[in-house]
């Protein structure tokens, strides 16, 4: 696969490490009364769609950026690539 890095352009997926569902950015707040349940769901329950999936990749053999890649899990087509830090900031983290 080739991941079109938002800063560096197309790079071979072999340079990257895969983590999983991009919702892993959305770490719960420990002070929330339901924190135990939220952490369980955050860590273990995943959307696992056949189709469009937002997921985290780390450019370990590159610029060390974490990326949010929007990819079709059926065709492997990549629709969008963002810097995960920007995504996280936009989410108010």
């Amino acid at each position: 696969m080739i991941i079109d890095h938002p800063l560096l352009g197309p790079r071979d997926a072999a340079e990257f490490v895969y983590l999983g569902d991009a919702s892993l950015i959305d770490r719960p707040d420990l002070n929330n009364p339901e924190a135990g349940k939220e952490f369980f769901e955050y860590l273990y329950l995943r959307d696992n769609p056949e189709g469009i999936h937002r997921e985290l990749w780390y450019h370990e053999q590159g610029d060390r950026s974490w990326l949010v890649v929007t990819r079709n899990t059926l065709t492997h087509e990549i629709l969008n690539v963002e810097l995960a830090r920007q995504v996280a900031l936009a989410m108010g983290r």
């Binding site: 696969m1 997926a13 072999a14 895969y18 569902d21 056949e50 997921e55 990819r71 899990t73 492997h76």
Partner: peptide
């Protein structure tokens, strides 16, 4: 291969 997939096919690496 290491990434979520329903493609039932993999890649060369």
């Amino acid at each position: 291969d290491g990434y979520n997939s329903y493609a039932q096919r993999g890649n060369l690496p």
